[in-house]
Simulated assay, not measured.
Amino acid sequence: MRLPVPVEIGPLSPAAQDAVRALADDAARHDGVAPLSEQPLLHLGADDAATTHVVARTSAGATAGYLQVDRSGDVASAELVVHPEHRRGGIGSLLLRTAQRDARLPERSGAPDQRGKPLRLWAHGDLEAARGFAAARGLTAARELLFLARPLDADLPAPALPADHVLRPFRPGADDDAWVALNAAAFAGHPEQGRLTVADLHDRAAEPWFDPAGFLLLEDPDGALVGSVWTKVEPGQEAGRVDGEIYAVGTAPAAQGRGLGTALTAAGLAHLAAVGCARGVLYVDGDNTAARRTYDRLGFARAGTDVQYAPA
């Protein structure tokens, strides 16, 4: 097929956002894995200097491909998807070249001495087609994000939390700043989680899956926030086959090494089982050895892999 005309770069209208979501849904049904992660979907409406949206259309005006580049971190992180009916026609290569050019641009703050950022491209599910696409363009795996799962059955571990600590639900509004500060400290240096802002928290709190009862905060005897576990259950799943996610679990640096992360994860699993989930799932970086040991002890096993590619 001929390359789509036009390629549009800029903010997305509400109709264009809906078209991208429909494109992602079609690709997910075809591939068996969602092509875009949560963050780019939440940012479809973003119109700022750190975010680039690119839509490729067919000559008839249908949305055939989408690219989003996030330049807010130390690297430019890109995610792209091409509709199954329009693959192997050059759209993916076109979107990748656009991402590479965008990443090389100086920061849009106007500082003349700033350089572009290295580009990292996410591929979800570690599909053979994605591996071939990356290899043909000189990209190699730079990071693995593991998808782990375990059944929520009678063998669930009991949460072994300190008796003098209090585990309570998150209070929207009252706990926002304190939790964001805890999260930033717990995930200092993490390329995504550690950069969450109060605005990012509010974006997630506005999603249909958000439930404060499944967002648990741990306080020490002085009332200081020392840990949290945030769970996520997507609505609309088939009864009896519902996945519940340990969305984020972290402890304050001063409280680490005391087993609180394991206990909080167990508390999150207990909550997911109580609301009817059949399987607990989570994501963890492949090189996070300490966290992987914890999840191994809790009965998790690998169920999938996302890969971030970079130039060799």
Rank of each mutant, 00 (worst) to 15 (best):
V5W: 13
S13R: 00
L23W: 02
A24Q: 00
D26T: 00
A28T: 02
R29W: 03
Q39M: 13
G45S: 01
A49Q: 05
T51P: 01
A60N: 05
A60M: 02
G73L: 05
G73H: 08
G73K: 07
A76G: 04
P84I: 00
S93H: 06
D102C: 12
D102F: 10
R104A: 13
P106F: 10
K117G: 04
K117S: 08
W122M: 09
L127M: 06
L127Q: 06
F133E: 02
A135C: 01
A142Q: 03
E144V: 08
L146F: 07
L156G: 08
L167N: 12
G173W: 05
L182P: 09
N183K: 07
N183R: 07
A186W: 09
A188E: 15
A188G: 15
G189Y: 04
Q193C: 09
L196V: 12
V198A: 15
L201P: 15
H202S: 03
R204V: 12
W209V: 05
L217R: 05
D222V: 03
T231R: 01
V233M: 13
A239D: 08
I246V: 11
A252S: 10
L272T: 14
A278S: 12
A278Y: 01
V284Y: 06
G286T: 01
D287E: 07
N288A: 06
T294I: 08
D296L: 06
G299K: 04
A303I: 11
G304D: 15
P311D: 11
